[in-house]
Design a protein around this nucleic acid. Structure first.
Lengths: 344, 344
DNA sequence: TAGAGTCAATGAACCGGTTCATTAATAGCT
DNA sequence: AGCTATTAATGAACCGGTTCATTGACTCTA
């Protein structure tokens, strides 16, 4: 105890071994909690490590082991409030299990998705969770099938060989649409995102299912897809409300697009509830606290994040599990004041 | 071109070298774009790499180089909508420069912050950007000063030796408070987060500055600190409005706490604007689209993210720059309908 | 007491790149 | 032609851990 702990920068297992009077193999075994180490020796090694301020070099461990204890998460845009919750919960579960989360944005482009998968395998990432811009894209599917590490899809379903965590958007959309039809609405406009991806596709399915269950048909002119930004939602709403025969209800099914829609209605002087009924495809403070409060579809993104991380951990552990498990989180409709009976 | 590209899994520089009829050193130099390679050889090596499906092992590169091309971002809670924007922009700048972002949540706890710094250095992370729960915490400061990689503080200012990117919360709060005082308000309640951290501390400074500039003193009973969750905001608002002599204006200065506050006001049947003036410390869809719209302080978090990444890149590049640069992003007050003249 | 069996400890080899001292080839100059 | 200067290419050594065949000490049994 005479000297200061040395600069940990340059302390290696070899130095610890020398200080403790053991072989490097023994230090390594102490480091990894291997059981075949005599308690006395273990203590001596641990003392030496503490005294020298030893810190293991994870890059060296990774290179030797061929794995990195890194899990990558690539989503189309993490500037989506609800997605942050997903990531937060997934990160907590992964860190608890000794993994570190690596984050990247795909900007919803197939070429970026492919490039990122390449970057992840070069980094010897142990697992990936990601969204896909287009589930049918050939090159992306090829890149996925060639990936040496397990990949879990976030809110995507069309690759049966992979694990998937989804929300039941179809049921949510069906509930929302039935609710509006039940209130007498027949001309319901729908704003969705990219139909090539699962969430918008299944929302559209649910929408149509509700219509056919009621024995009526939706007006295709009232459908707006590819609504991916606030500005898109603003424009779509404005154009819909400018139609000669405008909709009586607006189902803003794309995630986080309510703001743009409400902005347009306000600009045009259309009152939510009275002038038009509105249902949001995802819940938010805005939906809850708007006047009137907005009826919305809700699901547990925190649970989705936890499930995603847990499933991926099981897969990385190499547990004997069937290939391609799909887990669907339920959706519910929270009825508020923005959806009202149709008055002639 | 007779055979299929081989499994890249096991192709190493050695294999590429053999196939191209060159030494491993040459392959390495081609890989890294080193200039001293004859064009003909370079092409042969590149052909061999493509044919064999060669992929570098980044963990091996990291171990040899002692750096990882990884930048860590640790913030208290990334389930804060505006923060997602910061991360998104920072990630884009970093990826452009060849770095990958590593994400972790500190849950605003010093022990987690210290543990994460340890994990980052063991991973040979090249740079860190992070928030701090308590800028004066001794152990955290020690861990920071011992960090071998550059660290940039996000919205923190008290460690002059480190690079920092901040928002001008003091000025924002001063503007907001002056605005309310100008409208005749004297009993302004303030909800802030943790005073140990820069944002809340400087907001409080700005608040007091506005009061003293007006030659009056705030009522200390109307200050609520440690408002860190929606529930905290709800309770703080409810308790303030239940006072015998309640405030006439509410300055919800903590980030993203407007929802909890509005929920409490709605529950108590107090009308925003008429019953009480409200100013939000951060802008949002909710603030903009509420009825009435909420006066709010805004700043450019995307720019903060870009600046943070850029400054960190400069530091990692080892540019000759002064130690501890601080960059402050301006704040502005967006006046909307929720802040009204005091009527007696 | 000799021999077999058990098990902790050892340390060289290995993971897959990069680096750099050395070698070889070429160009330039007188 | 002969010598030097310049530059490309080589490949062994190295980065810092982990692994595993081997060693050696000790226990147990006959």
């Amino acid at each position: 105890m005479s000297s200061q702990p040395l600069r940990s920068q340059t302390v290696k297992v070899k130095d610890v071994a020398r200080a403790a009077g053991v072989a490097v193999g023994t230090v390594s075994r102490v480091l990894n909690g291997h059981p075949t180490v005599t308690p006395g020796l273990r203590e001596r090694v641990e003392k030496a490590m503490a005294h020298l301020g030893y810190e293991v070099d994870v890059t060296a461990q990774s290179m030797r082991a061929g794995r990195s204890r890194l899990v990558a998460c690539a989503i189309r845009d993490f500037d989506i409030p609800r997605f942050a919750l997903f990531i937060k919960e997934a990160e907590a579960v992964l860190r608890e299990a000794g993994y570190t989360l690596l984050l990247a944005s795909t900007t919803n482009r197939p070429d970026v998705e492919i490039a990122l998968l390449g970057a992840f395998r070069r980094r010897r990432v142990d697992g990936v969770m990601m969204t896909l811009s287009d589930e049918q894209h050939r090159d992306v599917r090829e890149a996925l099938s060639e990936a040496p590490m397990p990949v879990l899809l976030i809110d995507r379903d069309s690759i049966a060989a992979l694990d998937r965590v989804m929300a039941d958007h179809r049921e949510g959309a069906r509930l929302a649409t039935s609710h509006l039809i039940g209130l007498g609405h027949r001309r319901i406009a729908m704003l969705v995102g990219d139909i090539k991806a699962f969430p918008s596709r299944s929302r559209l399915d649910g929408f149509r299912e509700a219509y056919s269950a009621a024995g009526i048909a939706p007006d295709p002119k009232l459908l707006r897809d590819n609504v991916l930004s606030s500005e898109d939602a603003y424009r779509a709403t404005a154009s819909l409300m400018s139609l000669a025969n405008p909709p009586t209800a607006l189902f803003v099914a794309a995630m986080d697009m309510l703001g743009g829609c409400l902005r347009a209605l306000r600009t045009m002087g259309i009152a939510v509830g009275d002038g038009i009924s509105v249902v949001a495809g995802s819940d938010s403070d805005l939906a809850e606290l708007h006047t009137p409060p907005i009826t919305a579809i809700a699901w547990d993104l925190a649970a989705m994040g936890r499930h995603a991380a847990t499933m991926l951990l099981e897969r990385m552990r190499g547990d004997e599990i069937e290939r391609g498990r799909g887990l669907t989180v339920p959706t519910e409709l929270i009825i508020r004041g923005s959806s009202r009976p149709l008055v002639n």
